[in-house]
Computed example of a mutant assay.
Amino acid sequence: MAPPSSTVAAWELGLRLREEREALDFTAVEAAGRIGIAQNYLSDIERGKRKISEAKLDELIDVYGLDAEEYRELVELRSDAVLRGWWSKFSGLFDQDVLRYFGYEHGAEAVRTYESLLIPGLLQTNSYARAVISSDTPNIPVSEVERRVEARAIRQQRLFGEEPLRLTVAISEAALRQQVGGPEVHAEQLEHLIKVIEQLPESLKLLVVPFDAGAHGALGASTFHIVSFPSPKLPNLVWQETVTSTDVIDNPIRVHQYSLTYEEVVKHAYDRSVSLRFIREALGG
């Protein structure tokens, strides 16, 4: 299981409300009109982007004719959805899509990550993260760097504890060779990778794609994460990062395409034990 996440709860609540509406063949306009809200507002609720009040949820449940068990589950989801996650204190620092991703990641059961040039954020040391963040001077003010490093460190807490996030990372050999922050920061980062791989044998799998692996579907691709959740009612999501944009992808066909690409990448990667040995060699070399 994963810890509660207001973002995930709001998303599941919205999905379930939309499913109930569509099962009754109501349009969003009709359903919104029944409880006296705008259609756009209901659409945002169904996408998990806005919160619904307890009174309006009661009205909507009544309109949809849901039974007592469904009522209880939806009310519980709404209670979780209105809580403030740790990421809310960074609302002035990150845009809403990034904050949503933090919420999804916090409430996720598993994440599969592909990264071609950098060590993924969940596995970065503070020094490495600081070097990465501070290098983007056109877009990130110096005054924001330390708080962004702090947010990254908080995210990493999901890797530990009784119910850790299951993380599978496929990285190019280039990510191990790029000396972000200089030789000392680079060496510290590789030592950290070795430490966490050994510390988390059941929940962390890091796979290195060597230079001689040949071409694969993600070669040259931007960073992406495939996120899975404990609730069977929630589909997988993809979070994609480019230099100038980020994007949450929930279209089932596109998510499936990313999953197939990831499986292909893994075929070209060393397994966990060989990857660990490779990192040791990179550190020694």
Results as ranks from 00 to 15, higher is better:
Gln199Leu: 14
Arg177Gly: 02
Val274Glu: 15
Val75Gly: 10
Gly220Trp: 05
Glu191Lys: 14
Ala81Arg: 09
Ile253Trp: 11
Trp11Phe: 12
Thr246Val: 12
Phe26Tyr: 14
Glu188Asp: 15
Arg72Asn: 01
Leu13Tyr: 08
Lys56Asp: 14
Gly107Phe: 08
Gly107Ala: 03
Phe211Gly: 05
Leu200Asp: 06
Pro210Asn: 06
Ser135Ile: 00
Arg254Ser: 06
Thr244Val: 07
Glu19Cys: 02
Ser172Glu: 15
Leu219Cys: 01
Val169Ser: 08
Ile226Thr: 08
Val142Trp: 03
Phe160Ser: 01
Glu19Ala: 12
Phe229Gly: 04
Tyr270Arg: 14
Arg47Asp: 04
Leu15Pro: 00
Asn236Lys: 15
Ile171Gly: 02
Glu264Ile: 09
Ile52Asp: 10
Glu264Ser: 14
Ser5Lys: 09
Glu281Tyr: 12
Val227Asn: 08
Phe94Trp: 07
Ser231Ile: 06
Gly33Tyr: 05
Ile194Val: 13
Val29Glu: 15
Ser91Thr: 06
Asp67Cys: 00
Glu76Phe: 02
Ala221Thr: 04
Arg112Asn: 09
Asp247Ser: 15
Pro120Ile: 03
Asn251Val: 01
Ile249Val: 14
Ser143Trp: 01
Gly85Leu: 10
Arg50Val: 00
Ala153His: 10
Asp80Leu: 15
Asp58Asn: 13
Ala32Phe: 13
Ala218His: 06
Arg155Val: 05
Trp11Pro: 02
Gly121Lys: 08
His256Gly: 12
Tyr64Cys: 07
Val63Phe: 03
Val274Ser: 14
His106Glu: 06
Lys267Ser: 05
Val111Ile: 11
Gln157His: 11
Arg50Ser: 02
Ala269Ser: 12
Val142Ile: 07
Met1Arg: 06
Pro138Asp: 03
Arg72Thr: 08
Val185Glu: 03
Pro230Trp: 07
Glu19Gln: 12
Lys51Ile: 06
Gly92Thr: 00
Glu184Ile: 13
Lys195His: 10
Lys195Tyr: 06
Thr113Lys: 11
